[in-house]
């Protein structure tokens, strides 16, 4: 239990990450970009249109755009933060010493993952006050915001796990980066393409039947799932087009939990690869 609660790798990684100038600069620019967008939009809606007020539907639109911006940020930053965690240690020749300590492989991997995610969470949480401005103008419920944050958390952990797995199995950080960004591209782009293909093939057949594949591809695609979370029409649209009446979020949660489990398992098994069964 003590091992679970106290992780030296996590403490060390957090210390190193938050000492780095790059981290505080990254955080500053992120908040700056968010602020420019939110305040710029409010300014446009109130002053430029001459109406002098901000309507709830405009607030809701801002919420959707902000959610997509944050999703893009997560998809872009997570691989960068996680794909080098183990391979960098290998390149810097610090891994050998770390592996001879009495820390278990899972402790090292979980510590690395938690430290990377902690930074991303800090980014998301630090953006929360800006995000919450939408509440001032109505149109969005706190429950929606909570669901979106849980969705972000799951996505971050899954992509982070993939990054750590690639970082463990590849020797070079650059290869690991390419593989992680490639996987992310698959999850956001290729799945959308497969969804379109599956729908197309459904339309061309004489009898329209439920398209399970289309439903699956749409359900594991983060941007499409966000759409179903932020608007009730989103999930209805998916049910209508695929004719499958099964909540997409269950597939999403199941699939991404599977990614997390498999990736972390491989990373833990492969960390002390030269030791075979000896861990």
């Amino acid at each position: 239990m003590r091992e679970l609660l106290y992780n030296p790798v996590l403490i060390k990684e957090l210390k190193l990450r938050f000492r780095s100038v790059k981290s505080s600069l990254g955080l500053t620019f992120y908040l700056l970009a968010m602020s420019i967008f939110v305040f710029g939009m409010i300014f446009l809606a109130t002053n430029m249109t001459g109406s002098g007020f901000f309507r709830p539907d405009e607030s809701y639109f801002m919420f959707i755009v902000l959610t997509y911006i944050q999703l893009a940020l997560i998809l872009f930053i997570t691989p960068g933060l996680t794909a080098g965690t183990i391979s960098t240690e290998r390149e810097k020749q610090t891994l050998t010493i770390l592996l001879t300590t009495s820390q278990r492989s899972w402790q090292i991997i979980i510590g690395k993952l938690a430290a990377s995610i902690a930074f991303l969470l800090l980014m998301l949480v630090s953006g929360l006050p800006i995000y919450s401005l939408v509440f001032l103008f109505g149109g969005v419920s706190p429950g929606q915001l909570a669901v979106i944050f849980l969705f972000f958390l799951l996505t971050v952990v899954a992509i982070g796990s993939l990054g750590i797995m690639y970082s463990t199995v590849t020797k070079k950080t650059i290869v690991s980066m390419i593989a992680t960004y490639g996987s992310m591209l698959f999850l956001t782009g290729v799945t959308a393409f497969f969804f379109v293909l599956a729908i197309q093939s459904g339309f061309t057949s004489a009898v329209q039947s439920p398209s399970l594949f289309a439903h699956f591809w749409a359900s594991i695609n983060p941007p499409m799932m966000i759409f179903s979370f932020v608007s009730p029409e989103g999930s209805q649209f998916l049910t209508q087009i695929t004719q499958v009446n099964f909540p997409g979020w269950i597939i999403y949660v199941g699939f991404y939990l599977l990614i997390i489990f498999v990736s972390l398992l491989i990373a833990i098994k492969k960390l002390r690869v030269n030791m075979g069964k000896m861990r």
């Binding site: 810097k92 610090t94 050998t96 010493i97 001879t100 300590t101 009495s102």
Partner: peptide, 16 residues
């Protein structure tokens, strides 16, 4: 691992 102290021929250190 608890019994040994190991110093490799080449090793790196953590910045910062």
């Amino acid at each position: 691992r608890k019994q040994i102290g190991y110093m490799p021929d080449f090793f790196g250190v953590y910045d910062q």
